[in-house]
Amino acid sequence: MPKRALAEKRPWLLASLLAGISYYFVRDGQIPGLYLMAWKGAGVALLALYALARHKGADSRQIAAVMAFGALGDVLIELVLEWGAVAFLIGHLIAIHLYWRHRRARLSPSQKLAGIAFAVLIPAISFMLPSDRAAAPGVAFYALGLGVMTAAAWTSSFPRYRVGLGAVMFAVSDLLIFARIGPMAQSPLPNLLIWPLYYFGQFLICTGVVGELRRRSATA
């Protein structure tokens, strides 16, 4: 790869890692709210810029849009929970469209079973988690998009142990959010795990998709 490409494009990925990892350590500090929200959104927003810089094409713009709506959700969820959920859901729908267009030609029975399990179990478990049962239908509606996105990622032709695994990590992060308003309300685990699972899940999704698109372009 030309040195110019390394100098101009890889820094977006490094900047994303710095923002995403450092946010974990400052999120409970005394930083003013607006600055902290911007810091939170920066990690995934920079992944969107990375995708646009590393590959030119409709697919890379689509995964960049997924990251952009994720970053918007990161910020909006701090203001109004429902606004953040809508932004994330839009991102899931865009991702589903991308993964479906790049679905794997042949799936083993276990891979098909895993896809069905993600699509069914993620919304089902999400529905059962909130202590406030009035909130459960809305949670399940959002989780239906999350579950289908995870299933589509797992059964796509993108690298399963990057894109598929990243989607699973994203889903587990959201399940922990729902558990925090339910059976794990007193547990420290959600607070410890939600952000690392979410951010590195997005990181794996973005770099996995972009890396595969670049590989296909090079061999076309």
Rank of each mutant, 00 (worst) to 15 (best):
L6M: 02
E8R: 02
L13Q: 10
F25C: 12
F25T: 11
D28L: 01
G29S: 09
I31R: 00
I31T: 07
R54K: 13
A65S: 08
M67I: 06
G70D: 07
A71V: 00
D74V: 02
D74G: 05
I77V: 12
L81F: 12
A85C: 07
V86G: 02
V86N: 05
G91M: 08
I96K: 08
L98E: 15
H102A: 14
R104Y: 05
R104E: 15
L107P: 09
L107K: 07
S110I: 11
S110C: 05
K112L: 13
L113G: 13
G115I: 09
G115Q: 06
I116T: 12
L121C: 10
P123L: 07
L129S: 04
S131K: 00
R133C: 01
P137S: 04
P137V: 12
P137D: 08
Y142Q: 01
M149P: 09
A151E: 04
A151L: 02
T155W: 01
F158M: 10
P159N: 02
Y161H: 07
G164I: 02
G164Q: 13
V168T: 05
F170A: 06
F170C: 04
L176G: 09
A179S: 12
P183T: 03
N191Q: 04
I194C: 13
W195R: 09
P196W: 15
I205Q: 15
C206G: 09
V210G: 04
G211S: 06
R215K: 01
R216G: 03
S217H: 05
T219C: 00
